[in-house]
Simulated assay, not measured.
Amino acid sequence: MKLKVPILKFESDLWSYYLAIPKAIGEQLIEGEDRRVICTIGDGKPIHSALMPKGDVYSIYVKKDFMKKHGLAEGDTVEATMEKDRSEYGMPIPESFQVLLDQDTEGSEYFHMLTKGKQRTLIHLVGKVKNVDSQLAKGLAIMHHLKEEGELDFKRLNVLIKEYNNRK
């Protein structure tokens, strides 16, 4: 579904900008508790996001670097394409991490016991680095951590990721 929506600025230091999606359109894309969508602004890369309630609209977060890269500013109206996100994790998973999940049964079991939000956080940690070797190091550290701890402890995981990165 295509629509024209404004880019607005949050009155918060935590988040910067968002698209204001009309409630009626957002509600067409929400299924039960699942609010995950894929939004494409103009000819940009698809944004995997959740529709977040904000007053009389839903919001989709737009990062500052996306705004800068596309020459957008607060108050601009953009054409956006919205669709339901039917992917397994609500975001793309790096191939390197998928291979680890496919090969490490025990690690995969622990990973899949986590909430969808924690799974996305770990996928994002791996995917935010572009170098495949660094992705693999992070992925291996995550799998090791989950198998050793049985749960997610971000402080310990960060220490382990540093150790794995230094093994190169």
Results as ranks from 00 to 15, higher is better:
115 T>Q: 13
60 I>N: 00
69 K>A: 15
93 I>P: 02
26 G>Y: 05
91 M>A: 11
89 Y>Q: 08
104 D>I: 07
70 H>F: 15
80 A>T: 03
50 A>Q: 10
73 A>Y: 07
34 D>A: 09
131 N>D: 15
142 I>V: 13
87 S>C: 08
153 D>I: 08
66 F>C: 04
126 V>H: 01
86 R>L: 15
99 V>W: 07
120 R>G: 05
102 D>F: 03
147 K>N: 11
110 Y>P: 01
114 L>M: 13
61 Y>V: 06
85 D>I: 04
28 Q>M: 15
125 L>F: 06
53 P>L: 11
28 Q>W: 03
60 I>F: 03
10 F>R: 11
73 A>M: 12
35 R>F: 12
34 D>T: 09
119 Q>E: 15
41 I>L: 10
11 E>I: 06
18 Y>K: 02
52 M>N: 09
18 Y>R: 04
29 L>F: 10
80 A>Y: 00
54 K>R: 15
103 Q>C: 06
35 R>Y: 13
38 I>R: 00
117 G>P: 00
64 K>E: 15
132 V>Q: 10
131 N>Y: 03
109 E>A: 12
103 Q>L: 14
75 G>P: 06
149 E>S: 05
39 C>T: 12
40 T>H: 06
109 E>N: 09
107 G>D: 01
96 S>D: 05
58 Y>E: 03
168 K>N: 09
77 T>R: 09
146 L>C: 04
107 G>L: 08
20 A>F: 09
133 D>T: 11
121 T>A: 14
148 E>Y: 13
59 S>L: 02
34 D>G: 03
111 F>Y: 07
134 S>C: 06
152 L>K: 04
144 H>Y: 14
134 S>W: 02
108 S>R: 08
84 K>R: 14
21 I>S: 02
37 V>Q: 03
135 Q>F: 10
2 K>N: 13
165 N>M: 12
75 G>C: 10
31 E>D: 15
109 E>C: 03
161 I>M: 07
120 R>Y: 08
116 K>H: 05
151 E>N: 07
121 T>H: 13
121 T>Y: 15
54 K>N: 12
84 K>C: 05
12 S>M: 11
41 I>H: 00
15 W>N: 09
79 E>F: 08
153 D>S: 05
126 V>S: 01
137 A>L: 09
101 L>A: 07
155 K>C: 03
36 R>V: 12
121 T>G: 06
8 L>E: 08
31 E>M: 11
92 P>S: 12
86 R>E: 12
51 L>I: 02
90 G>R: 02
22 P>Q: 14
104 D>P: 02
113 M>P: 01
50 A>Y: 05
3 L>N: 02
127 G>N: 14
60 I>Y: 01
72 L>P: 01
81 T>M: 07
94 P>Q: 01
